[in-house]
């Protein structure tokens, strides 16, 4: 059987680096806005404790990094939801950014695929 794959275009990667434990809050918010899935991994942050001084003890140096791919049209909407869900308007909480993706690929169900690709 000949195998084939479909490339998705116009995709953007949003990455949020937040205090440990907030990753789950953000992924929950992402599911609510209709994102199919996201990736979380752990990391260590450096810098905030040094800059906050005594208050630095209240900031967890261990970080959750949330990666999620969204369609480029949806970036603003999802970006805002993640910002609010992760309470990123708090000092020391973390930061986030969006990167344009050249191309992406995953399993696309045939029922959806047939709508866009003439067979």
């Amino acid at each position: 059987m000949k195998r084939s794959f479909t490339t998705l275009t116009e995709a953007t990667l949003i990455t949020a680096v937040v205090q440990q434990g907030y990753g789950e809050i953000i992924t929950d918010a992402l599911l609510e806005v209709g994102i199919q899935g996201s990736t979380v991994h752990g990391a260590m942050g450096v810098g905030i404790r040094e800059r906050l001084g005594a208050l630095g003890v209240a900031v967890d140096a261990e970080r959750d990094v949330v990666n999620v791919m969204v369609s480029s049209d949806e970036v603003d909407r999802v970006f805002e939801r993640m910002f609010l869900a992760g309470k990123l308007d708090t000092p020391g909480m973390g930061f986030m950014y969006a990167t344009p993706l050249m191309q992406a690929a995953t399993y696309v169900p045939p029922s959806i695929l047939s709508k866009y690709v003439g067979s």
Partner: peptide
């Protein structure tokens, strides 16, 4: 040099609140 952050009372509360409550 590493500059120290200057925080207002509201921001300090915002940092401490989740730290203490969780």
């Amino acid at each position: 040099p590493v500059p120290k952050m200057k925080l207002g009372g509201g921001d300090i509360l915002k940092i401490l609140q989740p730290y203490l409550s969780t």
